[in-house]
Write a protein that binds this DNA or RNA. Structure first.
Lengths: 174, 174
DNA sequence: AGAACTTATCTCAACGTTCAGATAATCAAC
DNA sequence: GTTGATTATCTGAACGTTGAGATAAGTTCT
């Protein structure tokens, strides 16, 4: 079997690890557990974020585009390339997202004066109002998601995740 | 601006946090950073796992089903309900996955003797051989993904993720 | 037994993404 | 300046998931 922390509740990954140690005990179960937890937590977090975005009539991908434009500062305008790098999706996905947001009147496409290949996507006033109204609640929602950790634990977790991200090359300048 | 750890490389989320503190400085940036890192890391990990699965002719969802059946122990057989809970997807997704794996000859559907509504999905010998051959490399791949953390840091990260998972109710018995 | 409810799985349309490829513009080098 | 390579975006088919609903079987209550 596997050593368990007696004083804490078991999670689903504990069971998964137990199953592996019964059936393939020679496999190193620590990375299975750690990456399993990372992925399962991500699903839970996704769900919690999506529920909040839906209150504002948005899905996660739309919220992400609006937030990226908003945090870029005035004039709240970026080209598609910047949006796809920030979102870690393909160019086709950005085309579709901008199409949808544009149909909702939250962003508009403008030709880029310097580069006629490029398109500048800009928040409309309605888009800015929406994301400005939604952000404080979004952050409160994120705080709620992390509520189980005390301040020191949050700093620890953030540092560990960052260390892995740096190792994986997630260091592009925006 | 934001306090930075001077001795470590910056990651993309550091830039995102800087942008927010310039344009909406009153927002609490810690949860933005932490959840942003969790989600970005998950994308990187997904990609790294998928690349390995592809070497064995599988995608992530197929690997997940085979691994779930394998770790359940002999006779490597579960009903669809158990598979969807483990994978955190809907029943329709499991139907499709089992269809695909069945077409590849890696699993087979059998009627459940006790409950005629239920279907038992079982690894075929070919399916068992494939997942048994793939697991050691998969674990080595996961170890590589985590290579930037020393043993103590891995234990810390695992404990923090587990704490959040328990708080979010990821505690179903398998 | 019969009715009402729950559970297990499958079906199918809608949707968003990826992947490959098309188009068009810019840049580099000769 | 023209050729060739690169960059920016869009297009469209293929794919997997979701969500709602259908079917069928098991369960509970009277």
């Amino acid at each position: 079997m596997q050593e368990q922390e007696q004083e804490h509740e078991r999670d689903t990954v504990d069971d998964i690890v137990d199953q592996w140690s019964r059936t393939r005990p020679e496999l190193n179960s620590q990375p299975i557990a750690l990456i399993g937890r990372l992925r399962r937590l991500n699903v839970r977090v996704d769900t919690a974020l999506r529920e909040y975005f839906a209150e504002h009539g948005l899905d996660s991908s739309e919220f992400d585009v609006l937030a990226t434009l908003r945090r870029s500062g005035e004039p709240y305008e970026l080209n598609a390339r910047a949006l796809l790098k920030s979102a870690m999706v393909t160019s086709g996905a950005i085309t579709n997202r901008v199409d949808r947001l544009s149909a909702k009147g939250l962003v508009e496409r403008n030709p880029c004066p310097n580069d006629r290949r490029a398109v500048l996507v800009r928040l409309t006033p309605a888009g800015k109002d929406l994301i400005d109204a939604a952000m404080p609640g979004h952050v409160r929602n994120e705080e709620r998601i992390l509520a189980a950790l005390d301040p020191e634990e949050r700093v620890q977790l953030d540092a560990l995740l960052k260390k892995l991200l740096v190792a994986h090359g997630d260091t592009e300048r925006l």
